[in-house]
Design a protein around this nucleic acid. Sequence first.
DNA 1: GATGAATGAGTATTCATTCAT
DNA 2: TATGAATGAATACTCATTCAT
Lengths: 209, 209, 209, 209
Amino acid sequence: MGIQERKEREKERRRQQIMVAAKRVFSDKGFNKATMEDIAQEAELSPGTLYLYFKNKEELYASLSLRILQYLLIRVEHVNDEKDANPEEKLKALMDAMYDVYEFDPLIIINMFHLQSSETLKNLSPQLMSEIKELSRKSLGSIAEIFQTGVDQGLFVDRHPVAMADTFWALFSGVVLWLTSKRLINQEKDYLKQTLELAFEIFGRGVKK
Amino acid sequence: MGIQERKEREKERRRQQIMVAAKRVFSDKGFNKATMEDIAQEAELSPGTLYLYFKNKEELYASLSLRILQYLLIRVEHVNDEKDANPEEKLKALMDAMYDVYEFDPLIIINMFHLQSSETLKNLSPQLMSEIKELSRKSLGSIAEIFQTGVDQGLFVDRHPVAMADTFWALFSGVVLWLTSKRLINQEKDYLKQTLELAFEIFGRGVKK
Amino acid sequence: MGIQERKEREKERRRQQIMVAAKRVFSDKGFNKATMEDIAQEAELSPGTLYLYFKNKEELYASLSLRILQYLLIRVEHVNDEKDANPEEKLKALMDAMYDVYEFDPLIIINMFHLQSSETLKNLSPQLMSEIKELSRKSLGSIAEIFQTGVDQGLFVDRHPVAMADTFWALFSGVVLWLTSKRLINQEKDYLKQTLELAFEIFGRGVKK
Amino acid sequence: MGIQERKEREKERRRQQIMVAAKRVFSDKGFNKATMEDIAQEAELSPGTLYLYFKNKEELYASLSLRILQYLLIRVEHVNDEKDANPEEKLKALMDAMYDVYEFDPLIIINMFHLQSSETLKNLSPQLMSEIKELSRKSLGSIAEIFQTGVDQGLFVDRHPVAMADTFWALFSGVVLWLTSKRLINQEKDYLKQTLELAFEIFGRGVKK
DNA sequence: GATGAATGAGTATTCATTCAT
DNA sequence: TATGAATGAATACTCATTCAT
């Protein structure tokens, strides 16, 4: 392992350390109330150091989204890779995957929406932005593929698969956000799970022929 | 018209004038980036005047939600009042109502979520807060009633009507937020309408037996 | 009584009404925390009206001092007018008078000090300022006269009577302020009285030969 | 000298730099008219920096009092430590000490009174507040001790030593405030000194048997 | 005279970001 | 690289004062 590589690895470790701290602080206080000072303290670093790894506060926040999107893509592609599964089974597996994604980082949805705000987008580096867009595109595309197959096989109602994927994602987001905003999640995790299951069940019944 | 009454009316006109300006500015910049100075300028008033009509920035923002909630309740109750309509027809009418609500104020969903944040809630006057809670409660209750009837008549799948109402609302919110965040709305209003229709169609198929 | 005179009297009544309200509010909140709005409400008038009777907040505050100074002068001159009393008796009477002045308006001392601050003086009308100065001068002069007599008659130690008057006034002010600042006055009025008596006793013993 | 220690020292230097500037500005304009901006400019720092060293405006102001109280206590205790001196000599030494304290910081008295206002107290950190209270308590206690001895030895009139200490302090405060408020101090420092001396002389004669 | 709605200048405080060490 | 002290722009909110009615 060359010196260059070791440095690269060390640098990545630091980035992760900061992101872990940032996630905790942002979860706790939200984007606006969380200060860079808070995050630095949580990461046991100085504020200045944060800027060696992230261009600014927005980009640090956005990088959290990147991570979850990477996880989402892996899970969704994995669902699609099950060659033996039929569309209905894949839809079921997709729903399970979404729940795992949610558990991986319950903030995911809020991150997503913050991310899309125009004010935020202005402050991101083009590189990070294109990475995020690419990942989003791929994930949604992969979801749409499932619907495509279902429609092609006459198992699902004949609607535009991309629109179906959008709707599926929107339903998921909506439930998570709605219950989060009602502050039910932390206290009643089961209630969220049940509601998500109901939502998915209704959705599943709705897309089938 | 007494002098008292005229003053009252004038005062209400001012409140509306400020709310209209606030809505424009908040829509444009979001809650945090919008300054009271911005809003005052948009309303062609001085900053101090805003505080004669609204306790603080949070309460001004929240009052925008109040207005939309009032409209929502009226529409939803009207759907329920149609004695001749069967649950399926009511569900259809409810979906139309939601779309009107959305058109009345596309910010509605974002308002709703901002409103629920604990930081926000701390700054609201108890009176305003209870008004908002009451309106939310009534609206969701009214929606649940539609599902209740459907379930009772064996037309809808037998699930908890309140959970079905939650899911319905979450689906609506999710679609609006998702498309808003993708900045598609202004440019492609039709796409939102189509996606909402698809979402509602899928939902409708899903809740029916 | 002419119309002119009646108007004058009515105007004076209003001034008094405002001053009474102002005294209550200033006592309660201090000069800086008290708002003109507070005072207007206490006086059951509108803020604008206050400005018909007083040039500004400072002048309203200063006018309270004027009133107490008028009362002080009357009491002190009355002491001096007792032709039969000897200096020692007059000194005793003076001390009683000071206590009455204090009871007439416990804020007196704080008023006095606020009044003298240069920022305040800048905002007073020349007329009001000269009235205040004149009253102060007369009162202190009258007090000095008592000491003058005492010194002349060889009853008091031979010091400059004006300096003795200053010291007397300073002692009185100091005790009142000190105990006020220790928040003892409202709770333990007796303690103030006792301390004042002790202070006056010591002072009395100190000035006598 | 370790790096830690050097930093500590540097930090203390900054605090002093700010306090010196604050003292100048507060002396000039009084607490309310002085702005943090003014003080920052006087200290040749930015406003934000002030807040790195002092929690808020009130605490900056209060810290000025702390310094003078520390000096006061040292001087007063030093007087008490003179084992050979009799009460009369101690009283004389105490008066000299008070004058030095006054010269150390002529604002002392005004600080003291501002400090006691309830609004002020609310904004102070508990730690600073208890330091101040402790210092006040000790100083007054030390003064009272002098009187105690004098009374015990039959040299002073038999009055409560704590009340005598209060009166002594009040007399001192009163003279300083009175002359300050008459704006005589800067122009005629001698006059203050003479008046203080007279006041102390009268007091001294008054407490002796 | 009296009103009270409107004004808008004034300010303490915060915090993302920088840069000398 | 890492630090963390310093920056200074940004902003919600207050309130003495005015003036059209």
